[in-house]
Design a protein around this nucleic acid. Structure first.
Lengths: 207, 207
DNA sequence: TGGTAAACATGACGAGCGGAATGTAAGTTC
DNA sequence: GAACTTACATTCCGCTCGTCATGTTTACCA
């Protein structure tokens, strides 16, 4: 339960725009909470409302249907992920340690709760055309923008090589994140990540 | 809709054990079909019954609850995957082409419909302790047995190195499979897989 | 300061869900 | 072939779901 989902009764006087956006973000945050804590299948409108501290009428006023709420949650989620990644990427060192640091960064990003929520939506979107249509462009944009930032730090690495390394890392991370979700061995994941860093340095930085 | 889910009225005379197993596998196959076609969230008992061509009473007779059906589906699914993998692995060549061939094989396994169903159950299991408890041991056993087979073909590669390569490949594949599910670029996936094969040969076979 | 519109709450509705109770048909056993 | 058990069908129940219609509060504006 995020802090932002509470404290709606903080001030007595709020302008309409403030009220609107506050309950809207409360709903979206609550939606993400639900996805993380109880999964997509059991994420109901009522549960979201309960967590957001508003009524079902509110969500109806802001979103015409549950699907629209989910679509909005996708965007909300992506924005949050983007800012989180941007924050981390600002601290990225260049030079020889750049690649392992970038891999660590991407792992942090893909193993967090936000990415867990994204995975829930992804899997659900496979069999839900509307949700799929909402996710695809947003997710592609996030992937591309992250790649731009990462590869720009990569320094002397040729552009296409850096991109390949990036996507390999991302997909490996997604697999490892799935493994983590089901309670795979953390020690093995650390071993694999370390090995991957070694490979990346050897194969992309030196070779 | 699998062939085995139909043709229940094939023979007039069936022994009790035959009847029992036929409807049971029909239900389990139908469950997998549902997972693949409409996803875990919308997989209901009635939908499963409709696809299996039996009534809700039947599933009630064989499984005490929906959760138990799902748990059984996990095992059924794993058995199918195992036999599919075993079939492919029998054709695996040794020698210098062994590693790329093994990677291709694993990709075939992890990008098929059976693995899609597994992913649905995996993600659902994250927030469902019972399902999780049902999946974990079965999945670990499958992973281990597959690794045993693969590494036994690996020839001169040291044991722990082969294992590391195997798990890296598996996790990369899972990430790529997720990408494929949401309609990522197939060309990029092929490029990444080819690159991974090159890395594997260079880093594990030669070096 | 009163009227208007936006933001939200409340309650009701039909549909679909999982599960229980009960009925019927097919196979087994003696 | 009659008693009995197993396999399956039918029907119903309580619940929760998403959505809608309507009522109430809050902010804005003249």
């Amino acid at each position: 339960m995020t802090e932002t989902t509470r404290g709606l009764r903080a001030r007595a006087h709020r302008t309409q725009a403030e009220r609107r956006e506050q309950t809207k973000t409360a709903l979206l945050d609550a939606t993400i909470d639900c996805l993380v804590e109880i999964g997509y299948a059991r994420t109901s409108v009522q549960e979201i409302c309960a967590r957001a501290g508003v009524s079902k009428g509110a969500v109806q006023h802001h979103f015409s249907a549950k699907a629209e709420l989910m679509a909005a949650a996708v965007e909300h989620l992506t924005i949050k992920l983007k800012s989180q990644l941007a924050e981390s990427m600002a601290l990225l060192p260049g030079g020889p340690d750049g690649i392992p640091a970038a891999i660590d960064l991407l792992w942090e990003g893909y193993s967090g709760t936000l990415s867990t929520a994204v995975t829930e939506l992804w899997v659900a979107a496979r069999t839900d055309p509307d949700l799929r249509a909402a996710i695809r462009p947003v997710d592609r944009a996030l992937g591309r923008s992250t790649m731009e930032h990462i590869t720009s730090v990569a320094g002397d690495l040729p552009r296409d090589r850096a991109e390949t390394l990036f996507w390999l890392t991302v997909n490996l991370n997604r697999g490892l994140a799935l493994d983590a979700e089901l309670g795979g061995d953390p020690q093995r994941r650390k071993l694999l990540l370390d090995e991957w860093k070694r490979i990346a340095v050897e194969f992309y930085q030196k070779g």
